[in-house]
């Protein structure tokens, strides 16, 4: 194993943070791991912008312009960029809107939907523009590894980090290759 700590950044784009939860599911395995890794940008650290990292873990697909910007930052900063979970890999549940126009989605959510009060479509200029379709990460940048699953099991995260530490390709066993 290398002596220098492996730096890890994580973020959730159009995701639900479930993959982050699963990462934490490593439970006690996390403790020894912390001797070898350190966190950069991550909801775990509250650092907002990634710096140079060894591993970037991204859950969620791309649903808006900000997602794309963050993804490109990660790609620039991370040696190994990892698409984590179903949404990052194929758009997942958010991509179910891909049959509909953005306008139709907004109208259903903010104007015509059941129980909508004070109906208006949010238009604050600070809100990132929605993409016409939710896209997987691979549509925008090159991805080095994929952890499938919704979420990927904790063992899959562990194997990935171990592999990077040992400078080998990750090898997900049958139980770690899950799409659900």
């Amino acid at each position: 194993m290398t002596t220098k700590k492996v730096r890890v950044a994580t973020c959730s784009l159009a995701g639900c943070f479930g993959c982050h939860m699963s990462f934490l599911d490593m439970d006690e395995a996390l403790i020894p791991l912390l001797d070898h890794i350190e966190f950069d940008r991550s909801p775990l650290t509250d650092i907002k912008t990634a710096t140079r990292c060894d591993i970037g873990l991204i859950e969620g697909g791309l649903c808006n312009e900000e997602n794309k910007e963050v993804l490109h930052q990660f790609r620039e900063q991370c040696t190994y960029l990892v698409a984590v979970g179903a949404c990052a890999i194929n758009g997942g549940v958010p991509a179910m809107r891909n049959h509909l126009s953005v306008q139709a989605c907004l109208e259903e959510s903010y104007l015509d939907g059941l129980g909508v009060v004070d109906a208006q479509i949010p238009n604050d200029p600070e809100l990132p523009a929605l993409l016409p379709k939710v896209l997987p990460l691979q549509a925008e940048v090159a991805i080095d590894f994929f952890l499938p699953g919704c979420p990927p099991p904790a063992a899959a995260f562990l194997e990935l980090v171990q592999a990077v530490l040992e400078q080998r390709a990750p090898n997900l066993d049958y139980a770690s290759r899950r799409f659900d």
Binding site: I89, N90, G91, A95, P136, Q138, F146, L147, L172
Partner: peptide, 8 residues
């Protein structure tokens, strides 16, 4: 298989 490889 871990991912689609092709654009969905």
């Amino acid at each position: 298989m871990t991912h689609y490889h092709y654009d969905p």
